[in-house]
Design a protein around this nucleic acid. Structure first.
Length: 854
RNA sequence: GGGCGCAUAGCUCAGCGGGAGAGCACUCGCCUUACAAGCGAGGGGUCGCAGGUUCAAAUCCUGCUGCGCCCACCA
């Protein structure tokens, strides 16, 4: 009886093998056969669910994608072979700003929400200098049109790469189901008091004209300059302050110094006047003022930075807004700027960009004698929206927030606990999560003043005077979801009441893209839509993602599942590293070092590229290395050739025929490899699994195959040959399955030569199967024989002879125990080395030595 | 300033308490009835530095240096 159940299957081994064309052959066959189709009838314990990262389709295809998605795919394939029904969906993140920006550039249009829908609207054939304005619905149509094209390009790449995704489970973060779930989750947050609105200073991107959240900030070093400006105190005293933002002088509301700073103790409580504008501002004490910065006294403005906001709030200061939402100084001078010459000075600044206003005010200060010396250039870090290219301003606006522990220590510690309950791969990524949660300074700002996104599903009633009642939002019926409040009326109102007194207005904002992405486990598992599916796949098993978005995607997903489902969204998180170019720099388009992934797949073959990707361990930044792909390709070709050879020797599905000790030793070695690879996969270390398998495979080819091939030809009789053939058959079947998660095309090709069905649904090799065949044979029989044959090869190499050259005599010396091991393989060594005579000489040496006489 | 990670052959990396390793690159050789896009053999490293623990340290501990990432600061 064979260890493998196998029906009679025609053996079709090609005369010549090639690694080319396997993708075109197998991608459509897998699709037709439904090899990767999720079986939703299985019980939860028999399911492995993956929360696939939806790629931003408006971004460019990048080798980084190939890298990290391959990692996940090896895990998916392993779990499938372990008998799990793998829930492996694909999502497209086509929601939000990146899509808007790409549509603007691609078509040369911009969205003007005040325009009516034009059913016949067509963008210019070529994006021209003149940007064409269109309505919000027209703009959204263009977004949909372009994302469809982008998504197809991604899907083609993923299929060719061999991702074992179930394409029937595809979703978009902007599709109807995602919008409904996103809005439903928000409304439930609102209902439980976890979502709230607040009119407060907010970080604001002046280019995109939207609020942004803490998680979307990044610091960039920018040149700036300290300007030394004189304020005027009582009795002609002059108080110099240093600022990098002189243009905010008209927005100044106070000066602040540290309470213990003796230079300023006298001034606390007094009033000073600003230069040029002659506005009276108080001098106050606050612990956050740093005596070592500038002159130790800071100009507090509406608002220069986040510290200004703290001072404004804690010291109860006035508000003097000068920077508008478009990044220009607003037309009217701020309240309190009543002095006539001050208003004249302000008139020079009104309407100017921040940059221009700064130049102008420096000129004015110089003229008035209130600028001391020349500006002193420095470089300092400035906050930017990560997708923006102008520094953020801070403006006051009404926004929606969701609790995330930033202002609530109970929730914060609950979320820290969730991080501890999660399994992290690699483990040290856990601390990044804790760092972030501990550093939160406020709740999660989820509203964005943008167009292409999931609308905030609310309206506000208008009172008799037509004033919106923001504190009484109108909510849609659940059955209405997804809803667009700008084109649908709230329950109990008619459309013609929009904008009318006693009528309603829509909340025109959309949700932050993370507010939707944070629900990918719920969206993919169709929470509230398909309860049966949800129960089977949620919480999921695995979240694979980049380590750079722990603070955004990973954290926000945990927040949502914690608030909504009272659980972690998944058990494991696997973080992948970056791709670095050969100079160890992160790859970037601007440096021209980006390689198109499809070109790589075509040049090296998908399995070769996957091989390179799989050599990058979880969480480790990895160099882009086409050399590794060449190695992968060589491995693929070697697998094809070795398989052809093994199968050509004769298939023997009969484990009882494995009688030779050398054959059993090889299988014992293989059993250890299976054990290692299995353990490695179970701890998400796919790289180790590959390494162990590959190392075994090469020694299998170089040593074992060479040793037994003469015997397998039948030189020493049928029993001896059958033992080798049966061992080779079993080893090949096992190795193909070990390689299958990494090299799905090559292994499937070989599998099809002699096995029915697909290798990707074949059972993962079991250690017990192999151990049952090899018993407790001594594995050193193989390594001993290999060592001796290596000595023989070295002699021939040193003598510059062919490996086929005859050896007259081989003398093997060593302790009895080693000679016994060698004896088990002696005849195979003799045949493989073309050795005339072998002499065995017992000795008291510790190790075996071999002496070759040519 | 805080946190995390990394430092081993020319390159990419494995090893993480008892032999310093792999692949690539390099050198030499070989048509060998699976594979010349192959096969065989070989040279090459005081395991970042300094201490400590131990019979024994690339491996554990402490400090230092350099590189990277995250966070904070940004008058």
């Amino acid at each position: 009886m064979g260890v493998m159940t196998s029906e009679a299957h025609e053996l079709r081994v090609p005369d010549r093998v090639t690694a080319d064309g396997l993708e075109d052959k197998w991608v459509p066959r897998w699709e037709r056969a439904g090899v990767y189709r999720f079986d939703r009838t299985r019980a939860r314990e028999a399911i492995y669910a993956i929360d696939t990262p939806p790629p931003t389709v408006s971004g460019s295809l990048h080798v980084g994608h190939v890298f990290s998605y391959t990692h996940t795919d090896t895990i998916a394939r392993y779990q499938r072979m372990r008998g799990r029904a793998v829930f492996y969906p694909m999502g497209w993140d086509d929601n939000g700003l990146p899509t808007e920006r790409r549509v603007q550039n691609y078509f040369g249009v911009r969205c003007d929400p005040s325009l009516p829908y034009d059913p016949g609207f067509q963008p210019p054939p070529q994006p021209g200098k003149e940007v064409v304005a269109c309505s919000r619905p027209n703009f959204i149509e263009l977004c949909e049109r372009l994302t469809e094209v982008d998504e197809q390009a991604f899907e083609d790449l993923w299929r060719r790469l061999g991702l074992s995704v179930d394409w029937s489970l595809t979703y978009q973060t902007i599709d109807e189901n995602a919008r409904a779930i996103s809005q439903r989750a928000f409304l439930r947050n609102l209902d439980r008091g976890e979502a709230y609105q607040s009119d407060a200073p907010t970080l604001w991107d002046v280019t995109f004209q939207t609020a942004v959240a803490q998680a979307e900030l990044e610091d960039r070093d920018r040149p700036a300059a300290y300007h030394h400006i004189t304020f005027h105190g009582a009795a002609d005293t002059r108080i110099p302050i240093a600022t990098t933002r002189p243009e905010l002088l008209p927005a100044c509301v106070a000066l602040v110094a540290h309470p213990d700073d003796e230079r300023y103790v006298e001034l606390f409580g007094s009033t000073v006047r600003s230069p040029l504008f002659n506005v009276a501002v108080p001098v106050l004490a606050h612990r956050l003022a740093d005596p070592d910065k500038g002159f130790g006294i800071a100009m507090v403005c509406t608002f220069g930075d986040l510290t200004d906001v703290i001072w404004w709030r804690e010291l109860d200061l006035a508000t003097r807004t000068v920077v508008g939402r478009d990044g220009r100084l607003i037309a009217e001078p701020p309240p309190g700027l009543d002095d006539e010459s001050g208003r004249a000075a302000y008139a020079h600044l009104a309407g100017a960009t921040v940059h221009t206003a700064r130049e102008r005010i420096v000129g004015l200060l110089r003229e008035s004698g209130d600028l001391q010396g020349e500006p002193e250039p420095i470089v300092h870090a400035v906050k930017f929206y990560e997708k923006g290219d102008r520094p953020l301003e801070i403006v006051s606006s009404r926004q929606w927030y969701v609790h995330n522990g930033g202002r609530d220590s109970d929730l914060r510690s609950a979320l820290l606990d969730r991080g501890n309950q999660l399994s992290w791969h690699p483990e040290h990524m856990r601390s990044r999560y804790a760092n972030w949660v501990n550093g939160l300074t406020g709740d999660w700002l989820i509203s964005r003043q943008r167009f292409f996104g999931v609308p905030i599903p609310l309206w506000y009633p208008l009172n008799g005077e037509g004033e919106p009642q923001y504190n009484k939002p109108l909510v849609p019926d659940d059955a209405q979801l997804p809803v667009d409040p700008t084109s649908e009326a709230p329950p109990g109102y008619a459309e013609d009441q929009r904008g009318q007194a006693d009528g309603f207005i829509a909340d025109s904002d959309v949700m932050d893209t993370w507010a939707t992405s944070s629900l990918t486990p719920q969206i993919a598992s169709r929470w509230t839509v398909d309860d049966d599916l949800f129960q089977r796949v949620f919480p999921m098993d695995l979240r694979p993602q980049g380590h750079d978005i722990i603070r955004t995607w990973l954290f926000s997903t945990i927040v949502r599942a914690h608030l909504e489902n009272g659980t972690l969204p998944w058990r494991h998180a696997a973080l992948s590293g970056w791709i670095l170019d050969p100079d160890r720099k992160k790859m970037s388009k601007s440096k021209g070092n980006v390689v198109t992934p499809m070109g790589l797949l075509e040049r090296h073959g998908s399995d070769a590229v996957r091989y390179w990707a799989a050599s990058g361990r979880p969480g480790v930044d990895t160099a882009f290395d086409e050399g590794q792909m060449k190695v992968g390709r060589r491995l693929a070709i070697k697998i094809l050739n070795a398989s052809r050879f093994v199968l050509g020797l004769g298939v023997a599905d009969d484990s009882a025929a494995v009688t030779h000790a050398l054959d059993r030793a090889m299988l014992a070695e293989l059993a250890a490899v299976v054990e290692n690879a299995t353990n490695a996969f179970d701890s998400y270390d796919y790289t180790r699994a590959l390494e162990r398998t590959e190392r075994f495979f090469w020694t299998f080819c170089d040593d074992y195959l060479e040793l037994v091939k003469v015997r397998a030809y039948g030189e020493y009789g049928d029993d001896a040959a059958n033992s080798a053939r049966a061992a080779l058959t079993l080893a090949l079947s096992t190795m193909l399955r070990l390689f299958a998660p990494f090299m799905p095309f090559t292994t499937e090709e070989v599998w099809s030569w002699w096995r029915p069905g697909t290798v990707h649904r074949a059972p993962w090799p079991a250690v017990e199967e192999l151990r049952a065949v090899c018993g407790n044979v001594d594995r050193r029989i193989l390594s001993t024989a290999a060592e001796v044959i290596r000595t023989v090869r070295k002699s021939k190499s040193d003598a510059k002879l062919s490996m086929r050259a005859a050896v007259e005599r081989l003398t093997v010396r060593g302790p009895h125990s080693s000679l016994v091991l060698f004896g088990e393989a002696q005849r195979d060594v003799q045949a493989a080395g073309h050795i005339g005579r072998i002499e065995i000489v017992p000795s008291r040496d510790d190790a075996l030595t071999a002496e070759v006489s040519l």
